[in-house]
Design a protein around this nucleic acid. Structure first.
Lengths: 220, 220, 220, 220
DNA sequence: CATGAATGAGCATTCATTCAT
DNA sequence: AATGAATGAATGCTCATTCAT
């Protein structure tokens, strides 16, 4: 969760940390440090149990500084969730190569999910949405409109095409595109609870779901 | 979530509320009232944000009374989670009729899950395990040992038999029995976040997963 | 400002502090202790600079206890001001003996003011109204409706009668009954600022105003 | 309270705001702007509740700039009070035309008070002295020595002469010159609290006090 | 000189827990 | 056993003051 590249791949070019840095640059860095620290704390303790004091300490700034960047604890929290998940949806919406078989497309989706979400701080963000969402209706709505709805629409388009082409027999997935991510969701939850006892391989889990759909490796 | 019978079916024999009640009976009723109230509050606000005061008010007892029954807030919380989920695992472990085809057995499992968990206060309990578990390692471990591990073993035995009988071709489910409940988990999370925008039919979702496994209605 | 009888004369019969005291009694005593402590602190430092912590310490209770009796700092403040001034207005409104000459009546008023306000914690309250009132419009309005307006009406009735009887020649006082208390107000302010340098005798000051009105001692 | 000339008449010669301004000039203007802004804020909220930030914003300077001109918040506050009230006392001390009757002299005083204090930002300053004075002994002392004491001495001289001349019968005013300003003081307090409900005409109020002293209009 | 970002001490308020009744 | 008043540690947030630019 603290691995260096973290969310980088999708939004690369971060300013190199040289001695000389403009105001704006330094300010952005600070803001980023606070967000990173806050994400770690929120993930570890949940919204209510997180102390602004700890976020500050972890970010290496004074408590008051946080309030220069965020109105209050909740704003800080929402900022994190709103900022970090939306970008990948865009990637998902990009029209896929028209000739690729559905199975390959879904495999690509799994790779995207594992690489850009599961192996990233975004996993923690996603978990926060799931765990704290019920207490922050605005947040849940934002997430629904900007992530879930859009992701499901993209997924449906994919599946619809596959059905038309005869690559998929039943419409179960069309009615419930959620089934494609369900294993990913379960993996995220599992990892936070049971990895100590039995680590779970996300990729393998999600691919197993594909196997069920299309059979082991063979054609569609 | 507030329906009277709630978790009754699995552990029936609850003392009838007569005017004349022994000490022990009254005490047990009080304990139950506190647990019920606490579950509601914990579900609505999460562990950290729940106030003992509110639990007391909802349970119709004084704040101090709660401490006569539970060491502290955390003990109250853990008691809930430990008490309410274990019973259904037993049901799951009961050896299934040997001649029933796997699909029927899984359909029965879905019914059990929907009836005894999803439509019950246990749904809230399960969600609490998922959301608060990371902060309560003891709780996660207990849950793993007494619920997850056992449920997965039972599920595996079922699937193993099905494979041997030739009812299932691939071993994906055997390696990842989680895939059977995954849709149920997702439905629980979804319901807390997005039901306002798009309600999700658990049964339909879980059955869709079966369709994917076995094809629409027909045999495997 | 901390003299024992303080506001007693108007609302006497306080429960004697015996060992045996009922819940209600003890609660009332505590509330009174908090109000007394708060008045002292507010008087000394003003609303904004008063620390609840200090009030608690002075009242001999824990900080949290204050919040059992008052919603917040402002409620505590307003309670003080609303509680302590209204009673004397009632005294003022009691119809005066019809045959007493106006000068005597005004002298009686002065005595009342000096005895029940100036020599009492009410002086501090009155000062608080004057100094903090502008920041608490609700408070100012309450004070206007329940103290100032009523007091002025009572005073006017008095003066009107005197004029009819021919005891007063001009109507200056009728138009501005405030002139009767003005010296009292000035004395209150003066005492808080300059008593170190030049103590001011309220009674003498207020009586001097009467002298101006009626001449030295003799009839009007 | 925001009228342009404000306190001008007594200390006229303010630098004209031309484009070309020397360092000193610009600096003085800045200082003045800060003082003006601070007075507004202190008047509206009191010393403790006033934020340096707001003063800076209102003055159109950066927060840090204020500290270039004033050691700290308290120095800024005291500067205001010390600067703005002393000048008028000088006017008061100027020996009055020897042949003018006392009533005219007092009327002139009232005019001075209304024109140079009540209708001016000095009213706010005077109120600040009264409300905050108790918390700033140094300030109270300064004010006593430089304003009150001197004003009272001047007033006494006037009255003494009037008595010698036989224009005043009793010595009430001599013993308590405060009675002359008392109505003015009361008007200042009243205006801040009750003007919404019942505006008070200062001039009329102060003149009513004179009527009481000398009778309506006629000679002494 | 000016700026305004950063600091951190300070304070109001909350809430789990205790304990006298 | 039950109560709920009392406690005080904990925490979010503010704001006077500093100082690098």
């Amino acid at each position: 969760m603290s691995s260096a590249p973290a969310t980088a791949p999708v939004s690369p070019s971060r300013a190199r940390k040289r001695k000389v840095r403009g105001r704006a640059e330094k300010s952005a860095a600070r803001r980023a440090a606070i967000i990173a620290a806050a994400l770690d704390e929120f993930s570890a303790r949940g919204f209510a149990a997180t102390r602004i004091d700890d976020v500050a300490r972890r970010a290496g700034v004074a408590k008051g500084t946080i309030y220069l960047y965020f109105r209050d604890k909740e704003a800080l929290f929402q900022e994190i969730v709103r900022t970090m998940l939306v970008p990948i949806v865009g990637v998902l919406e990009a029209p896929p190569p028209g000739d690729m078989p559905i199975r390959k497309l879904l495999e690509a989706f799994i790779d995207l999910f594992v690489r850009e979400v599961y192996s990233t701080k975004r996993r923690a963000v996603l978990r926060l949405v799931m765990t704290e969402g019920p207490r922050f209706p605005k947040l849940a709505e934002f997430h629904y409109r900007n992530v879930v709805e859009r992701a499901m629409a993209a997924m449906r388009a994919l599946i619809e095409r596959a059905i038309k082409r005869g690559e998929l027999e039943h419409d179960a997935l069309l009615r419930f595109p959620q089934l494609v991510v369900a294993p990913g969701i379960v993996a995220i939850i599992w990892s936070g609870l049971f990895d100590r006892f039995a680590p779970l391989d996300v990729t393998a889990l999600m691919r197993a779901q594909l196997e069920i759909l299309f059979g082991k490796e063979g054609a569609s």
